[in-house]
Amino acid sequence: MTKEYRTLHTTVNLPYELAFGATLTRFFDGLSAEKILGTRCPKCSRVLVPARSFCPRCFIDLDDWVEVGQTGTVETWSLVSYEYIGMAKTPPYITGLIRLDGADVSFTHLIGGIDMSSIDQVQSRLAIGTRVKAVWATEKPGSIFDIEYFVPI
């Protein structure tokens, strides 16, 4: 038997106040008004969503605001069923990358409104290529969860 040494149980708890900045503030204000906003790059013509203050590829300022579609196509997804300390959302839930109509990059969000009791149930409704649409939350304080999830059409 090896000797058990003492173990210190400790927690680090640190509150922060983080600036959204002008562009993300306007994007989240848009969600409050049930609009998904992106910005178009004048050089590569891509519509980036969530809206960005600059195009990382062309490295130029963006200020051409556009509203993108509330429907889109699932590019990939995962049924999350494990748990860990500090988890943002209680499982099961489905996270996915969705190419919204009118956007040139994918939007990360949840996919819901379907039976998640088993992977087979999920796969009967969801695959890469499935069309989905945004379901808006009743309360829209200006957070990513102003959209509750995207539901398969």
Partner: peptide, 22 residues
């Protein structure tokens, strides 16, 4: 980032799962 990806549960494992399915 705490504005967008973190509340949606993105971490090393969920990001890898999205990559794996593709």
């Amino acid at each position: 980032d705490p504005f967008y990806h973190r509340p949606l549960g993105i971490n090393e494992t969920t990001a890898a799962a999205l990559q794996m399915r593709q």
